[in-house]
Every structure is written in C-alpha cells, then in structure tokens.
C-alpha cells in the first residue's frame, strides 16, 4: 500500500477515532513515523475532529483547570514525600550497613586496644605494687638503719677473701638485724652464703639463715636475731646450709662494737 493509498483508504480517520484494531493501529503508528505526508494528513484529520468536538463544548470558565491544578498540587506535595522518604530509607539503610561495618571494625579495634591497655594496666599495677612494697620495705629499712639503737657492723674480708666485705646493722632492741652483702661475689651454683651470729667466748655460732645469691645489686635484707650477737660472720656453705660454719670458707667477719 502506497502512502496515497493509505491516505485514501479512510484508515487514518479511523485511526484518529480509535476505531481500528490494535494491530492495525500499531502498523499505522509506525507508518506515520516514517512518512511526513501520512503524518500531515493524520494531523489534519485530528485537527478537524478536535475543532468539531470543541464546537460542541459549552462555554466554560477556568474552574475545572483551577480545581485540577489545586488537586495536582496537593497530589504532588503528597507524592513528593514518597520518593524522598524512599530515597532517605535506602540512604539510611546504606548508611546503616556501611556504618555498622565501620563501627563494628571500630569496636573490634577499640576492644583490642582496650585489651592491650588492660594488660598493660595489669602489668603496671603489678609493677606499682612491687615498687610500693619495695618502697615500703625501704622505708622500714631506713627506719631501722636510722634507729639510734642500730649498730653498724662492718664485716671485713678474711684470708683468701680479702677483697670481699659486708655490712650488718644490728639492733638488739628490735630483735632484727639487716645485712648488706653487696661486697660479696655471686655465690657459685649449689652453694649459698650462710649468716652467723657469734658469741665470742666461748666461740658459739648461731645460724641466722642462708641466702642463695648476692652481688653488687643485692639489696639490704633483714633477719630475726635475738641472740645477743657479739660478732657476725658469713661463710660459703653447700645448698641448704650447714649446722656449723666451714671456717675455711669464712668470707667476712665483723665484731659488734
């Protein structure tokens, strides 16, 4: 069918009126797009029909249009909320998901940090506790050493051990004696230094205890001593100590003056 044949067929008039079947309507729609002359004829038919119908319309003011615009304005105001809240909902969900991941990571990191800090805190607390105890111990020692009743006894190095020395702080009143063994070398393995309280006449040793180790950093330590000491001696003994001092291993000796 040529363009003119289509125009002459009367189908364009039916097309404008919506009187054709759906298939033919689609075919003609396609032809109209590709043919300016068909389109022009169709527009002229449509114009004639709109003119005819408009001619039948009663005089009308703008009331209908005003009511429509008013309704559409309200619809738009209402409708505009939907996509906005919808997008907000998705945005919130996205933020929630991202935020959840972010805060989960943050939380994990913070938890790890917190655990580290807690561990450090625990270590520091132990250190502090130890330092505090030591400080308290120093204070007690200081008090003891500065006590007017305390007698400082220098224990000099004996034969074969001339370079060694030790100090005893003897307080007969408190019943405590303090020793500082920094001048003694580190005891060999399986050997200990044994502390002796001595009566001189007759020579009577009483063991005050043993210490496994000593050295330059050895701190002052205390032992209970209510033996009315007249002198102090330190010998090197097998581990566990001896009942009587081995005088061949007498390192230091000092007399209470």
């Amino acid at each position: 069918m040529t363009e003119q044949e289509l125009i002459d067929s009367g189908e364009l008039e039916l097309y404008v009126c919506g009187a054709l079947d759906t298939v033919r309507e689609r075919e003609i729609s396609t032809l109209i797009k590709s043919s300016p002359s068909i389109r022009q004829e169709m527009l002229a038919i449509e114009h004639a029909y709109t003119q005819l119908a408009a001619g039948l319309a009663p005089e009308s003011d703008d009331a209908v249009y005003d009511r429509l615009i008013s309704s559409l304005g309200q619809r738009n105001r209402t409708a505009s909320k939907t996509p906005w809240t919808s997008y907000l909902g998705w945005a919130a969900a996205a933020v929630f998901v991202v935020g959840t991941g972010y805060f989960y990571n943050q939380r994990t990191t913070l938890e790890n940090d917190l655990n580290k800090v807690a561990l450090q805190n625990e270590v520091l607390e132990k250190q502090l506790s130890a330092e505090s105890e030591q400080a308290a111990s120093y204070l007690v020692t200081l008090d003891a050493l500065s006590d007017p009743n305390t007698i400082t006894v220098t224990l000099a190095g004996q034969t074969n051990f001339e370079t060694t020395n030790a100090v005893a702080f003897y307080n007969a009143t408190s019943g405590m004696t303090y020793f500082k063994l920094a001048g003694l070398p580190v005891a060999p393995s399986n050997m200990v230094y044994q502390l002796w309280s001595l009566k001189l006449d007759p020579l009577t040793p009483t063991s005050l205890g043993i210490t496994e180790n000593t050295g330059a950093n050895a701190s002052v330590f205390s032992v209970k001593n209510t033996n009315g000491s007249e002198a102090f001696g330190i010998t090197l003994e097998p581990a566990g100590g001896s009942d009587n001092p081995n005088l061949e291993q007498l390192y230091t000796l000092g007399v209470v003056k």
């Binding site: 119908a53 039948l56 209908v64």
Partner: peptide, 28 residues
Amino acid sequence: YHKALLGVIYNVVKKQDIAEEILQDVFM
C-alpha cells in the same frame, strides 16, 4: 485538548456541570 474532550463528554451527558465534573475526572 480540554475543549474538544468537554465537547465529546457534553455531547453524551448534555449537562454542563456534569460534563465539567467528568472532564475533571478525565484529566485526573
């Protein structure tokens, strides 16, 4: 298009106020 559509509607219902109401509904 409103005038042509009003004419079509009015041709059927024949009352202006009714035709205008219907026209409003049609555009909605």
